[in-house]
Design a protein around this nucleic acid. Structure first.
Length: 948
RNA sequence: GCGGCAUUGGCGGAAUUGGUAGACGCGCCAGACUUAGGAUCUGGUUCCGAGAGGAGUGAAAGUUCGAGUCUUUUAUGCCGCACCA
């Protein structure tokens, strides 16, 4: 029977769907396991072959775990809010919900075809009110909590109020508004005037991770700095815990490093410097307290609050000019043009150790948001200070013996101190410690830790996002009561910002809060305060809001009473395995961990880290194909040279590579008819074929039938994108080879975590394997398997089990091929072997495995591979291979470096016993080598080396 | 500048604990079948060498009886962060 993958795959996909085969319950005696894919943003372009890579890997693991007897939660959903849908809406007027839902539908149909074992009944999408109710709910909780730094935990804001009432006599004297303003400084979700990344082209602010090199990550539009009143999340409060938690998760080192980098912990000291003529010191942060004797000037960030106070009358004009210039410089300009700039304030600080008077400058190389926004400059040992000092001709005092600072600063933290008073003669490391001690003891400062991680800006001036459940009374924000959630996204007539610069929600008519009746009403009713009708927040939440806790929702997706029930969360605990791209390292994966830790603090979840193990699948790059247009003498622009000829003298440097659609190229051979039909300009294309001739048919030496000629295309690895014509759609691959081949081939391509190009050359080999494997199931015998057959099978069992548990999926496919080869060579048609083979293959190629298993079955029993356990603990057959026998040790015996035979003996055999055994084998050795061993070296536990 | 990862045939890549480097697939070569092959099957395929044999995992050194694997130095490539004091 032919391997009809279309029929098989359709049949089993329907069978799984009808049987609801992958629905999973929150109640089970089985051990639980939660496998999660990073849910996709459903873009208009649909899936390409790169997307399913991680999904296939996680699907293999899920199926394996299920076959091993686990209750596996393996869901899929959609990150449905986002800019592209909204941009499209602005251009076409189509409601983003319509396009988003269309895209989701397309994604689902593409995903279904690949045969994933998702529990679709648990699917979520972030733009669903039933889902974003809990995004809004979490926001309200964050608004109503503050971070208690002493306890390192979020606590209800009411406790803070109680503390103020008890400890601060001025509290009672404040007005309600003043009290609210004060509380706002503590809330975890808070409103503040902050410097933001404003993107005029997108009309919205962006988070730090959404900006790269002064351009928006989406769209690549310029971003500028602006101060705006924004919602923020106090992520920075969680910095120590976000850092510490990394030690307790099983993630790759590189990803943890990226996060550590982003969190950016640095230990140092804050020091106070008195100001000459003022009785009010300034505080700076430094990690090099040891260099305080070399401070020759101070620098303030332009935005520093010290600037106003320290600018003298004579310098005011110069300072203001400089501040104005800095303000109008975009982030992009600042990065592109890193020249040294600055201005003197006119004030002097007093070095607390030397009492020297040191000038205070302003420069934009000091950042307002880090430390205290002011630094002590030590030009001898900091390259940035050095550049500044050279530019403005400020003194440079070297502090480390032997350091030459005539050309550049000496930044290394090594060497012996000099010119440093009490620190002279100490090593830098000891000097830092001593100085910290000195600072603490004398009270001129304190030892502190600084983090680079900033609070997340949480407002977006966009339409297609979660509305904030917030209304404004007397200009102060109040959250909607819990029973009013979700606050549904209103209809608007225009998705662009309003003329007055308000976000698109400014167009919404029904966008006012009736406090008395607790409902949304027409905003025209906002007339006066007595009406108790107030405006609702116009911004929406950013993309990461909906993706920060979606993994919890899968545990309990239909719960209307809670984000996740206690029972469901206690059962699933956390995500055991999370698979996704490393591009989310500093965005989603930080926000999720923050969000989860907050939920942990308030008792909603039982684990403070959301993702126990995390694997980054590599990116699939495109593999572009090229044709070579002849542009040399007499070129018509219509002649294309085969790739193997382009370095011939007559064509060298006379051809121009042109991208050609990879879908009309097979194994780098161009389909010339398809090429001519592809675009009008190629309609009359002529070719020089691989054999160097131009005639399109070769005379057939036999019957005169035409034989097509080959045009070979060149290739290159590039990003997979439409413009390179190298996008491969999984649907096309499935139509041609089937989902099982696609799954196998994606895994076969290389290690999961590495980036690699999608190269369709070679997919035939994998497809051939499936065909050959299928052919083994023609006539099945009930005879007892032979030892050899069992050996092949058990090698495979061992290998595949190891591979799956170690996420080394790519190496399983060769193992299957070898086993298939061996079994075919033995003409094996034993039911016991073939059944097991199908069971092993099931995680990788579930459809064909089901069909194989079905063919093995005597009567029509349920015959699902699912119901048959993965054979991890099958009895090992008697055989001679050491590695199949668990309690013996294998000693490959080498003679002069070449292994000649393998010696087997019990694991704990003493060394001299092994030597004796080897000598006893010396007869063999003599025969093999024509010599008797002179010396036998036994390395404990492993190898026997025989020197002849 | 800081940090992480990588480098093995013509190509993708194996080598799981330091133990026969190049599994498996592609491509290529030869053969079989065939009107035909861009189908299928069989055999071969790291390089040099006719052969015996020799060389060989980016480069150099080290540890070891033994190194693709461990250590140090170095080169190249990819990724992340970057005026973070």
């Amino acid at each position: 029977m032919e391997y009809n993958f279309q029929e098989i795959e359709q049949k089993w996909q329907q069978a799984w769907e009808q049987a609801n085969a992958y629905a999973v319950s929150n109640q089970s005696d089985k051990p639980h396991y939660y496998v999660l894919d990073m849910f996709p943003y459903p873009s208009g372009a649909g899936l390409h072959v790169g997307h399913p890579l991680g999904y296939i890997a996680s699907d293999i693991y899920s199926r394996y775990k299920r076959q091993c007897g686990y209750n596996v939660l393996h869901p899929m959903g959609f990150d449905a809010y986002g800019l592209p849908a909204e941009q499209y809406a602005i251009q076409t007027g189509q409601h983003p919900e319509v396009t988003t839902n269309e895209n989701i539908k397309r994604y689902i149909s593409q995903l279904r075809k690949i045969g994933f074992c998702y529990d679709w009944s648990r699917s979520v999408k972030t733009c669903d009110p039933g889902f974003y109710k809990w995004t809004q709910w979490a926001f309200v909780q964050m608004f109503n909590h503050y971070y208690d730094t002493a306890a390192q935990k979020a606590k209800p804001i009411s406790e803070l109020v109680a503390r103020f009432e008890a400890e601060d006599p001025t509290w009672a004297t404040l007005s309600e508004r003043e009290q609210q303003e004060r509380l706002m400084q503590y809330r975890i979700a808070y409103l503040a005037d902050t410097k933001v990344n404003w993107c005029p082209a997108l009309g919205t602010v962006l988070a730090n991770d959404e900006v790269s090199e002064g351009l928006s990550v989406r769209g690549g539009f310029p971003v500028e700095q602006r101060v705006m009143r924004q919602w923020c999340l106090r992520v920075s409060a969680y910095a120590p815990r976000l850092l510490e938690g990394l030690d307790r998760v099983d993630w790759t080192e590189s990803l943890k490093e990226t996060q550590r980098n982003w969190i950016g912990r640095s230990e140092g000291a804050e020091m106070r410097f008195e100001i000459k003529g003022q009785n009010n010191p300034i505080t700076i942060f430094t990690t090099r307290a040891d260099t305080v004797y070399g401070v020759t000037f101070m620098v303030l960030a332009p935005e520093s609050e010290y600037v106003e106070r320290l600018t003298t009358a004579e310098q005011r004009a110069a300072v203001e000019e400089y501040l104005g210039w800095v303000k109008h410089r975009t982030e992009r300009e600042r990065i592109a043009d890193r020249k040294v700039t600055g201005v003197f304030t006119g004030s002097y600080a007093i070095n607390p150790l030397t009492n020297a008077e040191i000038p205070i400058w302003i420069s934009d190389y000091v950042l307002a948001g880090y430390g205290t926004g002011a630094i002590m400059a030590v030009p001898a040992h900091d390259s940035r200070d050095y550049a500044f000092a050279k530019h403005f001709n400020l003194p440079i005092i070297p502090l480390i013996e032997g350091a030459d600072v005539s050309e550049q600063s000496f930044d290394a933290k090594e060497g012996k101190m000099m010119n440093s008073g009490i620190l002279n003669g100490l090593e830098v490391k000891d000097a830092i410690a001593k100085m910290k001690e000195y600072i603490t003891n004398t009270g001129i400062g304190r030892v502190t830790v600084n983090y680079r991680l900033r609070d997340a800006i949480f407002s977006r001036q966009r339409y297609w996002g979660e509305p904030f459940p917030v209304y404004y009374k007397d200009n102060m924000p109040y959250t909607l009561p819990e029973e009013a959630l979700p606050l549904q996204l209103p209809e608007v007539k225009d998705f662009k910002p309003t003329e007055t610069g308000e976000p698109p929600l400014g167009h919404a008519q029904f966008w006012a809060w009736d406090e008395a009746n607790k409902c949304v009403v027409d905003k025209s009713q906002i007339t006066n305060h007595k009406s108790q009708i107030y405006p609702i927040e116009l911004c929406t939440m950013p993309g990461f809001a909906g993706s920060s806790a979606y993994y919890l929702r899968y545990m309990d997706p239909h719960n209307d009473e809670a984000l996740v029930s206690k029972q469901a969360n206690d059962y699933w605990q956390q995500v055991d395995l999370y698979l996704g791209g490393s591009e989310h390292a500093t965005g989603h994966l930080i926000y999720s961990r923050f969000w989860n830790k907050f939920l942990y603090d308030i008792g909603v979840v039982c684990k403070d880290e959301p993702f126990k193990k995390l694997i980054n699948q590599g990116m699939i790059q495109g593999r572009s194909n090229f044709v070579y247009r002849y542009i040399g003498e007499g070129a018509t622009g219509n002649l294309y040279i085969s790739y193997n000829l382009i370095n011939n003298p007559e064509y060298k440097d006379k051809v121009q590579p042109i991208h050609v659609n990879v879908n009309i190229v097979h194994n780098d051979v161009l389909d010339i008819d398809a090429f001519r039909a592809w675009m009008p300009e190629y309609k009359n294309a002529q070719f020089v074929f691989a054999d160097g001739t131009s005639s399109e048919v070769e005379d057939n030496p036999y019957m005169g039938a035409a034989m097509p000629k080959m045009y070979i295309c060149g290739w290159a690895v590039e990003k997979m994108s439409k413009s390179m014509f190298n996008v491969v759609n999984p649907d096309d691959v499935i139509a041609k080879y089937g989902a099982d081949t696609l799954r196998l081939y994606e895994m076969f391509l290389g290690p999961l975590e590495m980036s690699k190009p999608w190269d369709t050359n070679g997919i035939d080999g994998v497809h051939r394997f499936l065909k050959k494997a299928w052919n083994m199931y023609e006539e099945i015998s009930d005879a007892e398997p032979t030892a050899e057959e069992l050996r092949s099978l058990h090698k495979l069992i061992k290998k595949v089990t190891w591979d799956i548990e170690n996420f080394s999926f790519n190496t399983s496919i060769p193992a299957f091929m070898i086993a298939q080869n061996e079994l075919a060579a033995l003409k094996c048609n034993k039911r016991a072997i073939l059944e097991s083979f199908a069971v092993l293959l099931a995680p990788y190629a579930p459809h064909i495995a089901e069909a194989m298993y079905e063919r093995c079955s005597v009567e029509s029993r349920k015959s699902k591979v699912e119901s048959s356990n993965f054979v991890i603990d099958a009895p090992w057959p008697e055989c001679n291979e050491a590695y199949l026998v668990e309690d013996t040790q294998k000693y490959p015996v080498q003679f002069n470096g070449k292994v000649r035979f393998t010696l087997e003996c019990p694991k704990d055999t003493p060394k001299d016993e092994v030597e004796k055994l080897v000598m006893a084998h010396s007869e063999t050795a003599r025969q093999l080598n024509g010599a008797t061993p002179k010396r036998v070296i036994v390395v404990p536990g492993r190898i026997v080396n025989v020197v002849l």
